[in-house]
């Protein structure tokens, strides 16, 4: 038998010894790279191409605020990995604490995003305003949608921990959610760098 847990879950041991579901999530994340890659490509192709006189990244984006929300999302990844670590050691009590923290930080990040979006709209940038607005809201919006799905997933796992056994298969169900969550986090690392840090740094030069 290749994998001690495989027999419990599937009737057949796998050729590689890897659980089917774990491979599924990794292949899925590979596919997701292409999704976000295309959105980021669109943003970059249109960077600095908005009509003159319309809001620019330099005028709109607020680095301090977004730094805080970035930090929040990074720390949620820490909570997530601690939740997985707990459940894989069979400690469901600690798992519940950490997973709630993760979901809470995720929700906080979403709160920041809602605040950011309304603030930008107040300052005159909506998805219809110019190319910057169109590409910015679409890219960060889809990232936010992924975070939302993640929060729902995490809360569901929290609820399930009272009903079923999450520690079987070495916590695989949690592992899958965790991988998804970290992926959403690293996408944000890219977005924060490309749109915010580099985008604002570079803005004056391009707008001239």
């Amino acid at each position: 038998m290749h994998h001690s847990q495989a027999a419990e879950h599937a009737t057949i041991a796998t050729s590689t010894g890897i659980d089917n579901r774990k491979m599924l999530i990794w292949v899925f994340l590979g596919s997701e790279c292409m999704f976000f890659g295309s959105l980021i490509a669109t943003y970059l192709v249109y960077y600095g191409q908005s009509l003159p006189g319309t809001p620019t990244p330099g005028e709109i984006l607020d680095i301090p605020t977004t730094s805080v929300s970035t930090f929040v999302l990074l720390m949620s990844s820490l909570m997530m990995v601690l939740a997985y670590s707990s459940v894989s050691r069979g400690n469901v009590r600690n798992f519940r604490i950490w997973i709630l923290c993760t979901a809470l930080l995720g929700a906080t990040f979403l709160g920041f995003q809602v605040f950011e979006f309304t603030e930008f709209a107040r300052e005159g940038l909506t998805p219809k305003t110019n190319l910057f607005g169109t590409t910015f809201f679409t890219l960060t919006g889809f990232h936010g949608a992924h975070v939302t799905v993640g929060v729902i997933w995490l809360v569901s796992l929290f609820g399930y921990s009272f009903k079923g056994d999450l520690t079987k298969d070495g916590g695989l169900s949690v592992d899958m959610a965790a991988l998804y969550w970290h992926f959403v986090d690293i996408v944000w690392i890219v977005i924060f760098t490309v749109i915010y840090l580099i985008g604002v740094t570079n803005a004056p030069a391009l707008i001239e």
Binding site: W26, L29, G30, S31, E32, C33, M34, F36, G37, S38, I40
Partner: peptide, 8 residues
């Protein structure tokens, strides 16, 4: 994962 990342 790296394959998807590289292609993206």
């Amino acid at each position: 994962f790296g394959g998807g990342l590289l292609l993206a």
